[in-house]
Amino acid sequence: MGFERLKKLMKTYFGVEAQEYPQNAVTKTYLFQIQPVHIREVAKLLKENGFNFFHTLSPVDYSPKGRGLELNYFFESIEEKIWVVIRTELPLDNPEIDSIHDIYPAAEACEREEWEKFGINFKGHPRLKPLLLDDTLQGKWVQRKAYVPEPHRD
């Protein structure tokens, strides 16, 4: 139904196959590796096909391994009990991707947090302003591997 249709459309529109994602201990999950420019179209497609629950956005910094930033979006279809992971890669210098906050309002806070911690510029996000960290850590992109926390005294 919803997922089968999504699989077909992802193949025809973006030419990506659904891969199994057995690492998810929760339930059956499929992974789509997409280009970062397609994120908005993919999100719209997911929403149309019943993937109405946004779980989380999890960026990983692979720069010590010679790769860039990897973004993982986790979605769930409440009716079908299927999860989908949308994976995309960004370069580490000046990472930019379109925001999906208007398609999935739940992503707004997540994107804001990841902007603050990784320095990913979500284009079109209405309020990319400090959320959790204090002023001294703004712009240091604390979750990147290049940032090493050191013992400090105030």
Partner: peptide
């Protein structure tokens, strides 16, 4: 305006 008990656990 949250963030008053931030510890950056993910980094730690």
């Amino acid at each position: 305006d949250p963030g008053y008990v931030t510890r950056n656990l993910e980094k730690l």
